[in-house]
Design a protein around this nucleic acid. Structure first.
Lengths: 250, 250
DNA sequence: TTACCGGATATTGTATACATGTAGTGTCCA
DNA sequence: TGGACACTACATGTATACAATATCCGGTAA
């Protein structure tokens, strides 16, 4: 899962960060547990200095929590924390869509978005949708959301959206895979894709409020999927990071 | 300005962070300039390890930018970056207010907010307002905004609001001092205070949309003040961090 | 005169040794 | 038997030494 010796080009810090993130999201490092630096050194192969840097970055990323007496522990999230993180991401993406609409997007700007839209159409058109197609959807969806955010042309906002999407269960593509086995999976994807189309239309027509409202609602599709996953308590393996959610009974 | 030998209790990392932040915001480290670690070591008195930690944290805070080839430089902000950061903060505070309204706040929850409101009334009532009173307003205003955000009872959101308010020119109290010498300073404070009162009223009555809209508009008072400051090109010394804004000509 | 190449210098990335503070455990006393 | 204190062990915070790499300057050739 973690590339050990490979990628000699990237720094030890980045390697340690990736490696530790995998360990956290997979649940190998259990929530609430203190992360031992020495243990992390053994696991990642890097020395203490880059490991410490990685830990600081993962704290800022929201995956770790600083312990007052020193060191870090794996953060835990309540179900509402996750819902709020999704709503937060939707609000920020909504602001980005409004900025894009108000500031105007040329057809040249919108062209790559529309191409992406068409590609997603091609994926959603199949019935039933294969697992591979779901993977394609995830990639295309992530690209579309990234381009929509970029359209705001606001570096501070793009930065914050990225931060809000860093948590895997808050990311735009987080819950796509979890619903891949559900019977009405295709319907959900179609609805989401329709929202994609509408928001781009709104931006094109400079309808800021409409663009904002749609993006907010669009995020709530993920919220619905979260509820489904938590109710069925299934497909936990399809979203790394779901292990960080502490259930109702503590 | 920076406490050198004092506060032996706090870690070197925190001391270096505070010290470097002061240096950045005061403009002693010029925007766009690479920050030399060795120079930082000399300035702060800490060794390289805590200095590096501090640099990483300041990057996450948004004050520094990583240089691809290594190291960090002081970030620069366009006027629109600053405007967007204010709008962003307003949007997040708006979401917090909506959460507070929708989830309900008991009179017990609201009591400290109303006390703070009364205290601000006491400050704003004087005419003309002394410079000391302005300082009091800044402190009370910061407390009120913090309590309003807390009312959302959403740790992820509180975290993001704090991050968005970390940039001094995006903070709720950022531009209060800059307007202290303006003729209609008292009027602006009165208007802002009225918005405080209205948002608390909206939360009390569970009017989510109203609470959200008011908080967004409330942030735009800061945006107006920014325009005034940039037009008059005066009182730059009253907001540390204004030195980071690059003007229209380059 | 300008562009490119090579070396010297300085700066960052990494590893490790040392110091300090915390947590855990065991024993002793009430 | 329970609690408190002291001691030990370990984990983190800090400092520094070393290695690799980027930058800058000077020289040479086109």
């Amino acid at each position: 899962m973690a590339e050990r010796e490979s990628d000699r080009s990237v720094s030890q810090t980045v390697r340690a960060q990736l490696s530790l993130r995998d360990l956290i999201l997979s649940g190998d490092l259990r929530p609430g547990e203190r992360i031992s630096e020495l243990q992390a050194v053994e696991t990642t192969g890097a020395s203490r200095t880059p490991v410490r840097m990685a830990l600081v970055r993962l704290e800022e990323e929201g995956l770790l929590e600083a312990i007052p007496s020193g060191g870090f522990m794996v953060k835990t999230f309540s179900e509402r924390d996750v819902m709020d993180s999704i709503e937060l991401r939707g609000t920020l993406e909504g602001l980005a869509a409004r900025f894009a609409a108000e500031r105007g997007a040329s057809s040249r700007d919108l062209e790559p978005l529309k191409r992406c839209l068409d590609e997603i159409d091609g994926v959603v058109r199949q019935d039933p949708i294969s697992v591979d197609a779901f993977s394609s959807y995830v990639a295309l969806n992530a690209r579309l959301h990234a381009m929509l955010t970029e359209l705001s042309r606001s570096p501070p906002l793009i930065r914050q959206v990225d931060r809000a999407s860093a948590l895997p269960f808050a990311s735009p593509s987080g819950f796509v895979m979890t619903q891949s086995t559900l019977p009405d999976a295709r319907d959900t994807l179609m609805i989401a894709q329709d929202q994609h189309r509408v928001v781009i239309d709104a931006i094109e027509n400079r309808e800021g409020a409409r663009a904002e409202a749609i993006m907010r609602e669009h995020a709530r599709v993920a919220a619905r999927n979260l509820r489904l996953v938590l109710q069925n308590k299934t497909h936990f393996d399809l979203l790394p990071g779901l292990a960080l959610i502490r259930m109702a009974g503590e």
